[in-house]
Write a protein that binds this DNA or RNA. Sequence first.
DNA 1: CAAATATTTTGGCATCCCCTAAAAATTCTT
DNA 2: AAGAATTTTTAGGGGATGCCAAAATATTTG
Lengths: 139, 139
Amino acid sequence: MDVTETEARYLKIIYRKKHEEGREVNTTGLADSLDVSPGTVTETLQKLDKKDYLNYEPYHGVKLTKIGKEKSKKLLRKHRILETFLVGLLDYKEVEACQEACTLDYHISENVINSICSLLGHPEKCPCGKYIFKNPKKS
Amino acid sequence: MDVTETEARYLKIIYRKKHEEGREVNTTGLADSLDVSPGTVTETLQKLDKKDYLNYEPYHGVKLTKIGKEKSKKLLRKHRILETFLVGLLDYKEVEACQEACTLDYHISENVINSICSLLGHPEKCPCGKYIFKNPKKS
DNA sequence: CAAATATTTTGGCATCCCCTAAAAATTCTT
DNA sequence: AAGAATTTTTAGGGGATGCCAAAATATTTG
């Protein structure tokens, strides 16, 4: 079962906070980041748990599963390649590139991203300096 | 009021059929093209009418309004520039390019498309030979 | 004109995402 | 540690979107 666009937004934020910035992921924090009510956050986390993208321990936070991490990394890879493309080939500024990438990363296919990645010469980092994950060949 | 992704699909098909292929647009035809039931088509046409993208005459077909035509052309412009990009720079084949463009054309911004259009040297036609509309400066 | 075909209406269903307010759990403070 | 303050979850709801089947209505055709 695949994630919805909203759920994808959660995964991207959770991965970044937890695995790249070492920050804690709590309901209130997510609610602030996403500009929704805490109840809404809980609901979405429960859905992501049901879909096996994370383990949700009520009152005690979440932990991304294997497939949750993979999915998050795929999304962030797309996001960062898009940013690199927008800044490198289309003269976008970082901030605007990030905004555009936020919408597109969910809708663009793995295939197109891989092609763009080649076109860019397989960059290591996005314009903001964040690591661009490798394409995990299979699936 | 803006169109949904589904409504956008309708606009693209209606414009193409009517204004590029001179074909008639009827409920059954749309239902076949879109692989939904006739009732669903009627419902969506009514919504597009309510949003002023077309005039819907029950039992007698539809006619795109001015903003309906503009919207359709914007979408088809995006679609065709995307196709050109995919084929020209990413080595896609026409068929696959069209499929990818179908999803992306709705989600990509005017701005990104304009940049890609420049990058491509403002092509006149897409890989399948269809006309690429000019960017109507304002709005 | 009657039969066949096309279209619309009706009623319904599922998904998605969001909210508020009350309840429950946790954490903080003294 | 007990009560207060904060955080989180639950419960109940709502709006938007998109789809369907079947009945009703209109149009077209033989």
